[in-house]
Design a protein around this nucleic acid. Structure first.
Lengths: 295, 295
DNA sequence: ACTAGGGTATGACAAATTGTCATCGGGTGC
DNA sequence: GCACCCGATGACAATTTGTCATACCCTAGT
């Protein structure tokens, strides 16, 4: 027995709905002959007459009527496939898994994501935070779709695109004498209480090296882990913090000022995805959105 | 955009299930080239790659995976159409509406129907009883599928087939002197208390005529409507009933005897269906079953 | 490095399906 | 009787679906 055929089902439904093969034909955009043939094909498939021909008209048989419901179901479910495919095409449906440092999520990423959700309201987003090392692995192994990480990045399984860079700035308490300056040099920090973070991290080592090179001794008052905490200590006038300007921006208010620092120490964040597989359409859309956002 | 295609969906599913186009091909009974083409067609339809080709293999993309569920649904629902069509073809699914006199249902039809249900366990049956006149109309107008009715029948919208015939018999109380006879003639009933039914009906008129022709006065003790009631009066020795032998059979027990009667008055029951439309497959199956049952 | 064996893509072509046109025959309504 | 609407069908065109042969890539085992 031949395979059942989608077009004959459509023809069948059109005949049932319109009541005649001619009308069905114009609805389907084909000729009456075509409809007639499709109907014959369907009748041959099921093995019995679906319409009996009376006075030149097509009258649905009992059997045909019992089939209509099921046929309509089948057709709509095929339709749904098309629809879902289109939604996926438009990237307005799906789930996006992103890994990024908490500080980055709280800062620049928040706006990026809220803008993306606005454009694609039916997309759900999973945000995860992990250590840079595991984040790298998660992206490479595709347990998340993409991630944001501080550069440089050389993991072989990752494809990386630099997105945004910022300089280290000095967060100075409002009441501090240096707060009046336009910018601070490394020598200006001699003898000042410092608040530093990221002990052992790449960016921190760079800072240590700069101080060594400038022969300025570091008077570290507080070691901490996050920009948020460092800033809150600054606002309590416990010292001057050297932080990533991009991340510190969000905590900038009356209690402190952010001053450019020289020598410049840059931080670069980039977008990473697995090099093993091309990005899904949705991930690509998100990537494009990021590019636009960061110009 | 082209219409979506059933075969490409099947190919898609086979590829997902088996993991390769080659395996999918052998599952579908076509060649690998065919599968490759069908997949291309589907990708063209949805507008994006469903599999990315890596090292000569087909790897489903995220988008493809999100579609699998929906595609499987669509395919099974099309499958169900085929299945339902086959069930209808086998007449083991559906509903059969029958109209028949109560006495006929209680008697011969009960066995016919129970046999039919045994053969077609998923068929449901609606039994209705109406006056012969409305029964005729119901069948002609196809508000029921078929019916049983006493002949002769000349309604123009009905197609009629005689099924079974029986003779009028005398139902005589066991204790009655005539109960010893092998058969009764009309003269034997002279002066006997009679129990008759169906006043005004065709069959009753025939009885009245026979008495008139034989110049035997009728001493009607009881007029009633149903064979069941007539028989129960007989068993209480209230008189002799003239009833349709076929219908009286079921009430025949120790309390009375059924004796052939002459002149013979025959009753004929037939199968009726609408002449406007061919019988549905299920109705035809039921009709065939009736023919077999009544030989 | 070479080869065997797995995989997919594609050009060329055959088969089947789907569609059109023209035409027939039946039914309806004036 | 005539105009018109409907469905079926033969003849043929267009499109889809499938095959074969072949090319190419990758892996694994010599």
């Amino acid at each position: 027995m031949k395979d059942i055929n989608l077009k004959s089902l459509e023809a069948f439904q059109a005949i049932i709905q319109t009541g005649s093969a001619t009308a069905a034909a114009s609805e389907l955009g084909i000729t009456q002959s075509g409809v007639s043939r499709l109907l014959s094909a369907l009748e041959e498939h099921v093995g019995y007459q679906l319409f009996y021909r009376e006075k030149g008209r097509l009258i649905p048989s009992e059997e045909a009527l019992s089939l209509t419901k099921e046929i309509e179901l089948a057709l709509t479910s095929v339709e749904r496939v098309s629809l879902l495919a289109k939604n996926i095409f438009d990237s307005d449906l799906g789930n996006l898994k992103i890994v990024a440092p908490n500080s980055f999520i709280a800062g620049p990423l928040a706006d990026v994501i809220s803008g993306f959700i606005e454009k694609h309201p039916n997309v759900t987003i999973d945000l995860k935070t992990n250590s840079p090392a595991t984040a790298r692995e998660m992206v490479a192994h595709r347990s998340v779709d993409c991630g944001f990480i501080q550069f440089p990045e050389t993991h072989p399984g990752l494809s990386c695109v630099p997105l945004i860079q910022s300089n280290t700035v000095c967060a100075v308490p409002k009441s501090h004498p240096l707060a009046k300056r336009k910018r601070l040099k490394i020598e200006d920090l001699r003898g000042q209480d410092l608040i530093l973070l990221g002990k052992g991290r790449e960016s921190r080592m760079t800072i240590d090296e700069k101080f060594k090179a400038a022969r300025v001794p570091m008077k570290i008052k507080i070691e901490t882990q996050t920009v948020a905490i460092a800033c809150s200590f600054v606002k309590r006038s416990l010292g001057i913090a050297l932080v990533n300007g991009l991340l510190a921006e969000q905590y900038n208010d009356d209690g402190m000022v952010l001053l450019p620092f020289s020598p410049s120490i840059t931080h670069q964040y980039g977008f990473i995805s697995s090099a093993h597989a091309p990005m899904s359409r949705l991930t690509t859309a998100f990537y494009q959105h990021c590019l636009e956002y960061f110009n």
